[in-house]
Simulated scan of single mutants.
Amino acid sequence: MPVAIAGMHRAGTSLIAQMLAMCGLDLGPAEQHLPPQADNPEGFFEHRAFVDLNERLLAKLGGIWREPPQTSPGWENDPALDELLAEAQSLPAQYGLSEPWGWKDPRNSLTMPLWRRAWPDLHVVVCVRHPLETAYSLLERDHLPIDVGLSLWTKYFRQVVSDVPAECRTVVHYGAFFERPEDEIRRLLGRLGLEVGQEQLAAACGCVSKKMRHSRLGDAALRVLGADAELIDLYTTLCVEAGFDSTIDSESLSGEAALQDAIARLQRSLDVCVRKSWRLLDQEREVLAREAKLDQMEAMIAGQRAYIDEREQYIGDLQRHLAVLGTRVADLEERLSARRHRYADAVANAAQRVIKPFRR
């Protein structure tokens, strides 16, 4: 049974993928994965080929990860997608993945119908994280406004819940792995039919670092900030399916405290964005200065080209004048040659007349 790890960007999919890989799920060798980055130093655990196919599929559907496409039911049956379907079915054998195998990509949430058509027995692990925590992280990494991040969160999870039946999915909450990592990974492994020893389990739980999670937000923060009712209902439903209590905030935050915590987080994120904006402004000034210098160089080059064109025209005039002179010289040489012949004939005739009397 293949396993697809889905969810939303910045929602904990990398952590879940790392833990499952340590418990025996074949995600392919590390050299086939996207490289770690500053925002995800442990790695993304995303196979390049699967991500590339998802990106091309989204492009065919008219979207990208931050602008999900508008699709109609049954879009996966479009004959125009048959080539991508065949490619999807060939990936495991092409890259030597062995049972149990899977792949991780948050874009799976938007493209699951095609993957489920490729493998009808596909099981989907849906990784959920508090919408505000996800939106804060997207703001810091991608400079997406909070409302855009929350809207994307809703679109991703609405889509994957709609496209994958409950019996074909397991919903896990990012926060649960910090509160009860062993119990949560056991629950997930049980749903996937994976058996591991205690050492593997302990190693997987060791992936969880308290530094990765700074506080626990619940429904109160969403309600205080006036989040969309659909988002709150969807998050509550997913938390119930994951067995995670969404009503508890860290340190028993009250509504006012939740708001203050959210504002503080937002302020930190905005501070980061402001610093990045100043850096971008500095870079923009540098670019403008270089563009001005480039304009000066282009003007200089244009002047040189004009001078060269003028010289080339002058040379062309000289060449034409030389050609005329050459023609004249050739004509004069021809005339001179003719005169020389006449002169030679005249001299020869005169000599004959002088010599002729003496021959008698």
Rank of each mutant, 00 (worst) to 15 (best):
A4R: 03
A4H: 01
H9F: 04
R10Y: 04
R10M: 03
G12C: 09
T13I: 10
I16F: 08
I16E: 05
M19F: 09
L20S: 04
M22S: 14
G24K: 09
L25H: 02
L27Q: 04
A30F: 09
Q32L: 13
H33K: 05
P36T: 04
A38N: 10
N40G: 03
N40H: 12
E46Y: 02
H47G: 02
R48L: 09
F50K: 01
L53Y: 03
N54F: 08
N54R: 04
R56I: 07
L58T: 03
A59C: 05
K60G: 11
K60S: 13
P73Y: 01
W75R: 03
D78P: 10
P79R: 06
E83Y: 02
E87Q: 12
S90C: 06
P92V: 00
P92W: 00
G96V: 02
E99H: 11
P100W: 04
P100D: 09
K104L: 06
L110Q: 02
M112W: 01
P113I: 06
P113S: 09
A118P: 01
W119S: 11
H123Y: 08
R129D: 02
L132G: 03
L132H: 03
A135M: 07
G149K: 01
S151C: 08
W153R: 10
T154W: 10
S162R: 13
S162G: 09
E167N: 10
R169Q: 10
V172H: 00
H173V: 02
E195I: 09
E195V: 13
G197V: 09
A202G: 06
A204L: 05
M212G: 15
R213F: 05
R216L: 14
R216M: 11
D219N: 11
R223M: 12
G226R: 06
G226I: 01
A229N: 08
D233H: 12
T237H: 10
L238S: 01
C239I: 04
V240K: 14
G243L: 00
F244L: 03
S246V: 06
A257V: 03
A258S: 15
A264E: 13
L270A: 10
D271N: 13
D271P: 00
V272W: 13
V272T: 15
W278T: 13
R279T: 07
Q283S: 13
V287S: 14
A289F: 02
E298Y: 05
M300S: 14
M300C: 08
I301E: 06
R305I: 01
Y307G: 04
I308P: 00
E310D: 14
E312C: 10
Q313N: 11
Y314Q: 13
H321M: 12
L322D: 04
V324F: 12
G326Y: 05
N349Y: 07
A350H: 06
A351I: 00
I355Q: 06
